[in-house]
Design a protein around this nucleic acid. Structure first.
Length: 420
RNA sequence: GUGGGCGUGGCCAAGUUUGGUCUAAGGCGCCAGGUUGUGGCCCUGGAGAUCGAGGGUUCAAAUCCCUCCGCUCACCCCA
């Protein structure tokens, strides 16, 4: 028997209410902030990610679903949403639109990882990108939007972490400081961190090993080594967030695994601690569009993991509207009644009343049982007597009462009952 | 890629330590019936499992051993 591929999941009808709830909430936030929806293909040319996300990153090195198509082009299932959004920005000349260009998207993302709680090989992201304006007020807008999204969904006990990791102006000098700090301590670092020391020293800061954590706490912090421009940007962002009453926490050890980030980085975490708990992560990437052969163009955005949000909606027992929508079932006895039942069901649907026909070949008792177990509020019953009278029995399943109604007025009658 | 836990009908699950009484308990769900055209409670019956797969040990394996596969949690990394 075939099963869904490892790390993927079917989203079954009974789960859909969570997804609809999230989509509605996210779309509402996006629209309120003036973001327009963007949809990009599930696959892109591999080079887009190699250059955009960065040669040395884990995503590019070992997590991409890449393949050659029949024409020999190397394509990759989108591992993240920012590079494609920037590609679309360039491809469609969006720099000729009023800046910044504000975009949002819902899209699946694919990474070849070992699945675990809250981590999948196919997951879904709600993402937002503001391109073409480097002002810190845009950072504040995007951070606030992420915060509003989570709160609007009813999620509570969240922590918003922010940091600045500088830019190409100041980061090299900072990294030297960092290495100088760590070199004498190298012996005590964990194996992974020893390797990181040369390759990506920033990552030393968020190692989870206890001894590494202690050393990281004493390490020089990015925010203390920003160039004047980055410092100014950072200070202004913090000021705006305070004005907006967005409750953030500066986390000097917050860094990023993707190469394109500059200055602002942020994440939102639920209270439940766990390995991969970030509900949402984002940051500024002023170098990315240039890296993709575009003109120097600032950008900032975030991506929120839909599966993780669903997980937390359930954990926190956030009330999510039930959306079972079938209002009526047509039950019947005998072949004559069956024909009338089929057309009655059709007629009700055309009036906008969600209706199903009871399964064939079952006793009335079984049909009623069926209606009950599906929670259908109204049952319409057709038998020989009703056919003779040109009527139908309307049974209110919640009240347990029923009455006979003329066939031609049943749609109107039902409609009144449902809308009242 | 590394490490831990687990794998019995659609779901939950007893049994695996002490191999035979397991032609595999029970619950949920599903289907039918409890008299003639009616649900929700209750009762009865039914369908549904090569006990993850393959190999081995044994007179005998769901139960022991090996290999593989899958699920899951953690590391790594990330949404």
């Amino acid at each position: 028997m075939y099963r869904a591929p490892r790390g993927t999941a079917d989203i079954l009808p009974e789960e859909q209410r969570y997804w609809h709830y999230l989509e509605a909430g996210a779309r509402a936030v996006a629209q309120r902030y003036g973001y327009g929806r963007l949809e990009t293909p599930v696959f892109e040319n591999t080079g887009l990610f190699v250059r955009g996300v960065g040669q040395g990153t884990d995503i590019v090195e070992k997590e991409m679903y890449s393949f050659d198509d029949r024409g020999g082009d190397s394509l990759t299932l989108r591992p993240e949403g920012t590079a494609p959004a920037c590609r679309a920005y360039l491809e469609h000349g969006m720099r000729n639109l009023p800046q910044p260009v504000r975009l949002y998207y819902f899209s699946p993302a694919f990474r070849y990882e070992r699945p675990q709680a809250g981590r999948f090989r196919q997951h879904h992201q709600f993402g937002v990108e503001a391109l073409g304006d480097g002002d810190p007020s845009v950072d504040a807008e995007v951070v606030e939007m992420a915060w509003q999204l989570m709160n609007g969904l009813g999620l509570t006990d969240l922590t918003l972490l922010v940091n600045s990791i500088g830019d190409p102006q100041c980061r090299p000098a900072y990294l030297e400081h960092l290495k100088d700090y760590y070199k004498p301590l190298a012996e005590r670092l964990c194996q992974d961190c020893k390797e990181r020391l040369e390759r990506s020293p920033l990552r030393l800061l968020d190692c989870k090993q206890p001894t590494c954590i202690i050393m990281a706490q004493e390490a020089p912090q990015t925010v203390d080594h920003l160039c004047p421009e980055c410092r100014d940007h950072w200070k202004k962002l913090l000021g705006y967030l305070q004005k907006l009453d967005v409750p953030f926490r500066v986390e000097p050890r917050l860094v990023r695994g993707l190469d394109y980030y500059t200055r602002t980085v942020f994440e939102i975490h639920p209270a439940e601690e766990g390995g991969q708990s970030a509900l949402c992560a984002g940051g500024r990437y002023d170098g990315l569009i240039q890296e993709l052969d575009g003109p120097p163009t600032p950008g900032i955005g975030f991506a929120a993991g839909m599966e993780r949000m669903v997980l937390n909606l359930k954990r926190q027992e956030v009330p999510v509207p039930d959306e079972y929508f079938v209002k009526a079932i047509v039950a019947y006895l005998g072949d004559d009644a069956k024909e009338t039942a089929i057309s009655l069901a059709s007629q009700l649907r055309s009036k906008g009343i969600a209706t199903i026909l009871a399964p064939a070949g079952r006793s009335l008792k079984a049909q009623m049982r069926y209606a009950n177990s599906l929670g259908i509020p109204y049952a319409l019953i057709l038998g020989d007597d009703e056919i003779k009278n040109g009527s139908v029995v309307l049974r209110d399943m919640t009240q347990g009462e029923q009455r006979e109604i003329q066939l031609q007025s049943i749609a109107e009658e039902l409609d009144n009952l449902i809308t009242s």
